[in-house]
Structures are given as C-alpha cells and as structure tokens.
C-alpha cells in the first residue's frame, strides 16, 4: 500500500513541521538575527554615541582586540575564575552528596536549605556578601578573628578580590553539583556497592572505585552546565567589584559589557562577543562529542 504509506508520512511530516515551527521561528529571529547583526557590527566602527555613521573597518576590531593586553588579562581572569570555582564546587558537592545520600531520609529539610543559595535572587545574595565582606565592620573578618585568623581585605584588595568572588560562586553553586550527584546516586541500584562492601572494601574505596565511575554521566553534565555558567558569570562580579579593584576581576563578560554598554562602541564589543561565542561553541562541541552525551542523533 505505497499510496497510504505516503499519506501517513505526509501527515506526520506536516505535524513535525507545525510543532517545531513556533520555537524555530522565535529562535531564528531572536538568536540567529542578533547573531548576524553582531557579526556585521563586529566589522564596523558602529557606536551609539554617533548612531548615524557606520563605517566598514574590516578585521580592525579583531586585530585590535587580540593585540590588546586588556583582552588577554580578562581571558586569564575568566579562566582562573571558572576553573577554580567549578573545581571547588565539584569536590565539595560530590563529597557532601556522598555523606547526604545516607542521611537524606532522616532530614529532608536539609535539601531545602541546600536549594536556597542557587534559587535566591543572586543580586540579593550578592548584597549581603557585600555587607559581610566589609573589611572593618563585616561579619566575616569578625568570625575569622574569633578563630584566630588575621582579617582579609576581601573584595577591597586586588590580591583577594578574585578569591572572594570565587567564594560567592562556590556558595551559590556547590548545591547544584550536590543535588545532581545526589539524584544520580538515588537513581543507581545499590547492588554493586553492597557487593563491594561484602568483598571487604572500605567505604572510601567503594565510593571512589564503584560509585564515582557510575556517577560519571551525571557529573559530566553537571560540570558542563557549571563550566558554561561560570564562564558567563556576570551578576556577582558586576555588583561586588565591578571588575576592580583596578582590573583585578575584570572578566571577558565585564570587558564586553564595559565596551558595549558603557562606552557604547558596539563594533568593538561585538567583536569581543563573537570571539567569546566561538570559543564556547567550540569548547562545548568538543566536550559534548568527547563524552558522547546529548546524543540526539538516531
């Protein structure tokens, strides 16, 4: 019955098209069009301080950017922030998940508390960290003092500013890794752990040799999301340090914000945005292919 077959196929094809169309049209108009605008702007000297003139400057923005110390400084700061913050979050998150897994039935409210840092409005959390970081009246130096640790300048000094921001990111996002790993552990059947314990392996050995490898897919995905988001971090840096003191915490994101939104030089800022976009897309693709995750292909 080839004729009937094609009618069914045709009905199915039009169904697929109609269902995908709304999302596709919106994403095309709101991501692809802006993207093309960005690419175009990045080859011009367009600035909103003089919106009536727009001149084609070729690759000048890109060559200026790649030869500027500001860019490489920002790239270095972004890399340190991303890797150190996500590294600490992973170690803490996995560690606490391992402990919490056995405990969660007794204390389900712990999960709610752990949810708060990542769900609360980040600007509000950032504001309270600003109070706590205050070098003279802040509560953190007071508590450190009680423990006999000498006070820190926190966000006020270039040496400690980036670490302070990492601390806030760790506070905010460790629970994310924690919840994902915990969910993963709950979804895994317990038999391999039980077998390993019966064979006389201690809990540490069991965790690292049996549980952790089985958690890899969950952890990989959590890491991917965290790396992307940490690379994109804006709120806490903008509010706590604005990229300072000096340029000590000026990440690529803040640099692009400064050129684009503060100086209104859209051409140059677009070039920077395109460089960041290409970097994330390439890194994201490599990460995805490597892990064979997100395999939507049939």
């Amino acid at each position: 019955m080839p004729l009937r077959q094609t009618t069914i196929q045709r009905a199915e094809r039009s169904f697929i098209l109609w269902m995908l169309a709304p999302a596709t049209i919106l994403m095309l108009s709101l991501t692809l069009v802006p993207f093309l605008v960005s690419v175009y702007l990045s080859f011009t000297d367009y600035s909103l301080t003089a919106p009536e003139t727009i001149n084609w400057v070729g690759l000048k923005n890109y060559s200026d950017l790649l030869s500027s110390a500001d860019f490489w400084d920002a790239a270095r700061i972004t890399t340190i922030f991303t890797i150190v913050a996500v590294g600490i979050e992973t170690v803490l998150g996995v560690g606490i998940a391992a402990l919490l897994h056995h405990e969660v039935r007794q204390a389900p409210w712990l999960r709610v508390i752990y949810l708060l840092p990542m769900a609360i409005t980040p600007i509000a959390a950032t504001f309270t960290f600003r109070l706590m970081f205050n070098p003279t009246q802040g509560v953190l130096n007071h508590l450190l003092g009680l423990a006999g640790v000498s006070p820190s300048a926190w966000t006020a000094a270039p040496e400690t500013a980036l670490l302070s921001l990492i601390l806030v990111d760790v506070w905010q996002w460790t629970p994310f890794i924690l919840l994902i790993v915990m969910g993963g552990m709950a979804a895994l059947p317990p038999e391999p752990e039980e077998a390993s314990q019966m064979d006389g392996a201690g809990p540490f050995r069991t965790f690292f040799l049996v549980t952790l490898p089985r958690l890899k897919p969950y952890l990989a995905l959590a890491l991917l999301f965290r790396l992307i988001d940490a690379f994109k971090t804006f709120d806490i840096i903008f509010v706590l340090t604005g990229g300072g003191p000096g340029v000590a915490t000026r990440t690529l994101n803040l640099l692009a914000y400064k050129y684009g939104i503060e100086f209104l030089s859209m051409g140059y800022a677009s070039a920077l945005a395109i460089v960041m976009l290409v970097f994330t897309l390439v890194a994201g693709q490599v990460f995805l292919r490597r892990l064979g995750l997100f395999d939507l292909k049939d």
Binding site: P34, L41, L252, A256, G260, L272, A273, T280
Partner: peptide, 15 residues
C-alpha cells in the same frame, strides 16, 4: 544556552 550573555545582549540592545 552556551552563548555568553553579552554576545546576545549587544545585538538585542541595538535591535
């Protein structure tokens, strides 16, 4: 989701 926000923000702002 991978797009850095400023890469979207600048064209959004201009548009």
């Amino acid at each position: 989701r991978m797009t850095p926000p400023v890469a979207m923000l600048i064209p959004f702002f201009v548009l």
